[in-house]
Nucleic acid binder design. Sequence first.
DNA 1: ACACAAACGCAATCGTCTGTGCGTTAAGCT
DNA 2: AGCTTAACGCACAGACGATTGCGTTTGTGT
Lengths: 190, 190
Amino acid sequence: MASNKIVRRPGGRTARTRAAVHQAVELLLIEGGLASVTIPAVAARSGVHHTSIYRRWGTVQNLLLDVILTSLIRVVPTPDTGSLREDVRQFAREAAHAFQDPLRAALAQAFFALPADDSASRRRYWARRYETLRPMFDRAEGRGENPPAPEDVVEHILAPLYFRRFVTARPVTNRFLDALVNDALRSSAR
Amino acid sequence: MASNKIVRRPGGRTARTRAAVHQAVELLLIEGGLASVTIPAVAARSGVHHTSIYRRWGTVQNLLLDVILTSLIRVVPTPDTGSLREDVRQFAREAAHAFQDPLRAALAQAFFALPADDSASRRRYWARRYETLRPMFDRAEGRGENPPAPEDVVEHILAPLYFRRFVTARPVTNRFLDALVNDALRSSAR
DNA sequence: ACACAAACGCAATCGTCTGTGCGTTAAGCT
DNA sequence: AGCTTAACGCACAGACGATTGCGTTTGTGT
């Protein structure tokens, strides 16, 4: 057989439709939550024909996963205040604030509403997420602060926030955030 | 107008169909996860006509919520080992073990995959859940152990377990569970 | 500028979910 | 035991999501 090399063409129109579809998904998530995100709805909202969406993403789940991962990759600035405790405190405040944002909250909810059979992709995502925070801990180490592991700190901060936001619906106060920071920095090695 | 009092009749046939439908939902959750639970599928599995299900529950969400709340009400035994630390450790092991059970894991996932606009019902459920654990803490207090609040302990144990199970997919080791118990009992008042 | 084919739009179709009218069954009350 | 009607089963139909074939547009390399 001849050269069956497929020449992709991600530029121009493809990029535009992709952006339009992504934006439509985000708007639908904000307005109607996870259940309102269907391919026909996204098609109507974005102006892209639904057949195009079916061909590119196949299922709503794939589309959602693409939107989620793309959105979460957007740079969240890594704090650099001069002390690890203050860095972590700022990280906690930003995380708590992110859950107030309807889009981010809906994305987070959609993330673990997806079938849990993609644990590999989840681990890959979080590994990258830890890497973006690593400079914060390297700087602390450079100051001789003997910091804990990034993944443990992230877990100590985010786990209770997820839990209150999506499970128990307890309110998140500033005092609670400070207690989280204390717990995170007091934790021993695992 | 005459007496328009509706006389409900929850016994006999109604109870049987309800039980059959609930069991069908649980089986579907185990086998195919949240997405496989549709009214027609439940109808086929339970032998109950789908119109009956539509009339009683209306939507899949209502049905799922009913199944979840009914299932979670089932008594989970409250540990009583003689020391709070050992009680909490046992609670943590049981919780971690519950997430291994496909049904319980699927129910928990379905719980927060539902639209989050029912924070009131969530708080009510957790308030009852804390109450069932209260004897554990009362006994500790009777022994002069000065225990923390039940909701804080529950949060310290369950939040990281939910987080690893549904968000980061990190493995849960016995060592991790012991660390959770330490954190839970070390926490100051909020 | 030209040619190739990736990506898209359009129309039509199939399958499943959702919902309604009506007759039948059986729970609860006297 | 008999009566009332809540709850159920059945047939049917409308709505929506999922897919496919085919012609058109438009990136991309030459």
